[in-house]
Design a protein around this nucleic acid. Structure first.
Length: 398
DNA sequence: GTCAATTCACATGAAAGAGACCACGGTCTAGTG
DNA sequence: CTAGACCGTGGTCTCTTTCATGTGAATTGACGA
């Protein structure tokens, strides 16, 4: 065993094809951000007053995933803080990602996370949230300063907990005597502002900036720049183009493109190749997809697995089927495994979740006199289904 | 033949409950001087 | 007298159930040509 591992470690450490892999990770902030000059200028102009301790307008950024919103805001945050330090301006910027599960996806957790970033110790649960709110207000109002609050992916949070908290935040300035606060909201959902409290909308959207998706050419520039940093050898232009094309086919998601390149690099490395080739991109694309799905399956709760098992069983017999069919197969499975069955209402939600995760295609169809139901289709590749079945089999040791 | 009403079989939404986890303050114990 | 163990209360969070309401087109049946 030891010898075997040694071998693997050797081949691994001997010749990495990466010079600096971090560059390809999504949380990396590069020196330059191509094709976003317009947005940088706008945001910088809007936030500039903060350096004179004047409250900048609230700002709302929206655009699809991987269009550089978060990246850009983090970049400007860094610059602003440096500048503020130099000019001795009491400026604080805290940013949280409202989507992070178990971190900031509820009202309590958002407040707790904010407080933590302000240096307080907050228990994970147990306190009433209005107490946290009070503590938050007290904390930021301790001394005169300007606070910029970056709420990343607020659309996710509002969907879960409503716009009450957001409303409170926008009204916060009237509660504060010393500190001024402004909010930067970031949303992936383009229509997010349309269905929230109009008071919040007008306040939060004092300034709005749209991030359009990158096209293939822009993606190529981004990739080329990062690849130069990340890899030892120069990456073939064709490979980069292919990567870009893959990502552009979606909706111009730069994060995806970078992931693709990184995983392709890892694959090439594992094969002890010096350069990344076309095939690696294809394989990487597949691997990312597969890992995502299998990981979800492996970690999802028991009854999700049972429902999925039911879907897979049905999919072996026919292509499309209805909720009720899944439910009856699911009930049989529950009986077999001696699990208490969930209601159809619940199973319907689980199936919806699967479709969100890209495991199934779900379409509401009306069969006229014969009712209305969901038509479901398994939408994972056969070779992944095989793996999925293994995982499922193992997890309820049938 | 046409057209609106009916009807089916769920979807979808809202609310609320169960049970796990946790903080806090009060009370009870045991150990100390 | 005091530190720590132990309780009860009240809070959040996730998963789930219950109850209520919504929905789109095939079917039905009334109606007029």
């Amino acid at each position: 065993m030891a010898i075997k591992l040694d071998k693997i470690f050797d081949s691994f450490s001997k010749k990495s094809i990466f010079k600096n892999k971090i560059v390809l990770q999504s949380n990396y902030t590069p020196e330059t951000i191509p094709h976003r000059n317009e947005q940088i200028k706008q945001i910088a102009a809007i936030l500039a007053p903060s350096l004179r301790l004047e409250r900048p307008s609230n700002l709302f950024l929206y655009g699809k995933t991987g269009t550089g919103k978060t990246l850009l805001v983090q970049y400007i945050k860094k610059q602003l803080l440096e500048r503020a330090k130099k000019q001795k301006v009491n400026l604080s910027i805290i940013s949280i990602n409202c989507k992070l599960k178990k971190v900031a996806d509820t009202e309590y957790r958002i407040l707790a996370e904010l407080l933590r970033q302000l240096g307080e110790v907050v228990p994970a649960t147990g306190l009433p949230s209005n107490q946290l709110y009070k503590r938050f207000v007290e904390n930021i109002d301790k001394e005169k300063r300007l606070l910029i609050l970056i709420l990343d992916e607020i659309d996710e949070a509002v969907e879960r907990i409503g716009d009450k908290l957001l409303y409170n935040f926008t009204r916060l300035n009237s509660e504060l005597s010393r500190t001024q606060i402004s909010i930067i909201g970031i949303s992936n959902n383009l229509t997010f502002l349309d269905n929230i409290d109009p008071r919040v909308k007008s306040s939060l959207g004092e300034e709005e900036i749209l991030f359009p998706p990158y096209n293939a050419i822009e993606l190529r520039d981004i990739l080329r720049e990062r690849a130069k940093e990340a890899f030892k050898e120069k990456i073939d232009e064709g490979v980069i183009a292919k990567c870009a094309a893959f990502a552009a086919k979606g909706h111009g998601d730069a994060r995806r493109a970078l992931d693709l390149l990184r995983v392709a690099g890892e694959l090439a490395e594992r094969e002890s190749k010096k350069i990344v080739s076309f095939e690696h991109i294809d394989k990487a694309n597949e691997k990312i997809e597969r890992d995502k799905i299998l990981d979800f399956i492996a970690t999802c709760p028991e009854h999700y697995k049972l429902v999925l098992q039911a879907i897979i069983q049905l999919a072996e017999k026919k292509e499309k089927f209805f909720t009720s069919e899944i439910y009856s197969v699911y009930r049989e499975l529950c009986a077999k495994v001696k699990e208490e069955e969930r209601t159809q209402r619940r199973v319907g939600d689980i199936i919806r979740e699967f479709s969100m995760q890209g495991l199934a295609d779900l379409r509401v169809i009306s069969r006229g006199r014969y009712g209305r139901t969901d038509e479901i289709k398994l939408s994972i590749y056969p070779h992944i289904v095989v793996k999925a079945k293994e995982i499922l089999k193992e997890s309820f040791n049938l």
